[in-house]
Simulated scan of single mutants.
Amino acid sequence: MARPAGRRDEIHATFIRHVAERGYELTNLGDIAGELGMSKGTIVHHFGTKAQMLRELEENYMRRQLSAVRRMWERLEAPQERIAAIVYASALLHVVDRDATVATQREVVQLADDPQMREVRKLRTEMQELTVAELRRGIESGVFREVDVELTTLQIWGSLQWMWVWFDPEGALRPEQVGASFVDLVLGGLLLDRLPVARLADPKGPIVTAVRECLEESTEVQGT
């Protein structure tokens, strides 16, 4: 019997969900095969190893994120708006791309020394460098106070990477609210003039709208 089109994508999507729910170490190719009604050999035929499946997950996810951020940069110009956008995106991804977001966040150090993960590390560095650049631009333009931009970038991303541990998008708080709280905390400590914080941390404001649209557009493009 012929396998339906997109079978490889179905396997990978199931793998991503298992990693999000159980973690990489507890994700078993046999369980995935059983769930999808196929042999384990079919999965090996498509991907080779479980590690390759993780590499594809990480690389595809980072490319989607970077694509979305570039779209955001076209719509948002001020450094404080761009920093807010990065924060909102991290929260909204828990709805727009939930399984992949949780899977990548909980396995951020997995295969960190694997030579095959070089491209993933490069993409992660690129994302951090975009943050560094906006922090520097904000300082140089007199919008942000003087901070160690490298350290601040690590603090921002370090906080956002742990969101999967405690944030339940089906709970009482919506991702826009969580993002707004982070924006208030981050930009409240960066801005020399705190007056714009209320606008930037508005969960119903135009920045949130732009971020959501850019994330959805990037996800749709990558999925075609």
Results as ranks from 00 to 15, higher is better:
L200N: 02
P206S: 14
E150F: 12
L192S: 04
I32G: 11
C214S: 15
R98C: 05
L92A: 07
A91Q: 06
D202E: 05
W73R: 15
R63I: 11
E126F: 00
N28P: 00
R7F: 15
E58A: 10
V132A: 02
D114C: 00
A89I: 07
R121M: 06
A13W: 04
T152N: 04
V120Y: 05
L29Y: 00
A89R: 10
E140L: 14
E58C: 04
T125A: 13
R64N: 15
E119R: 14
I207V: 15
T131D: 07
A5H: 12
L54M: 14
A68Q: 08
T104L: 01
I32W: 09
R70T: 10
L215P: 03
D148H: 13
G34W: 11
D31P: 03
M163P: 05
V96W: 08
Q105G: 04
G138Y: 04
V108G: 03
A51Q: 15
R136Y: 06
A198K: 06
L123Y: 04
E77L: 15
V165W: 09
R71G: 15
G37V: 02
V186C: 00
D97T: 06
L57K: 07
M127F: 12
M117A: 10
Q80N: 14
Q222I: 03
G205W: 02
A33K: 02
E119F: 09
R7S: 15
Q80K: 13
R3H: 02
Y61H: 14
E74G: 15
Q116P: 08
V197P: 05
G34F: 12
L54T: 12
T27K: 12
T153D: 01
G189A: 01
E81R: 12
A100R: 02
A2G: 08
E140T: 13
P79R: 04
Q128W: 13
E74W: 13
R145W: 01
G223K: 14
I207D: 07
P175M: 09
A68Y: 11
S67N: 13
E216I: 05
C214K: 01
V197M: 06
R98K: 11
K40W: 04
E10W: 06
S141V: 04
P175W: 06
E220Y: 03
